[in-house]
Amino acid sequence: MEIVLPVVIGSLYAMAIYMLLRRSLVKLLIGLGLLSHASNLLIFTAAGLTRSKAPVIPLAADQLRPPHADPLPQALILTAIVISFGVTAFALALAYRAYRSVNTDDLDQMKTTDA
């Protein structure tokens, strides 16, 4: 899998960047979603992949014996997932509000609205 995931991550980044560069606000938000998938996978992969068990100490044991997955990147990604949900929601609300105010979701037309 180490050989496939980088390609997946690269593709997700490429697609995310392309969507972020669209003029339509909604497309940009979808790009944001793809970007967070890509980044989370990046952290996950860069820390090393293992098919072994989760970083949970079995009830019978006193400590976790290797091999096991690295818990630290998981903790990072977990918060990142939830935060990116918050960001997406906020961005959606912002998009809605902006659309309501200026009646367009074309970012190029929005640039003149604060004049």
Binding site: G10, Y13, I17, Y18, L21, R22, K27, D105
Partner: peptide, 27 residues
């Protein structure tokens, strides 16, 4: 929210595709 609209001219889209692909490869 409004429907998707095709807003960017073809040349700019090509440029964005190139930027995106280069970024993807690099990543």
């Amino acid at each position: 929210l409004p429907n998707f609209a095709q807003l960017t001219p073809r040349r700019e889209r090509l440029r964005d595709v190139i930027i995106a692909i280069v970024t993807g490869c690099l990543m």
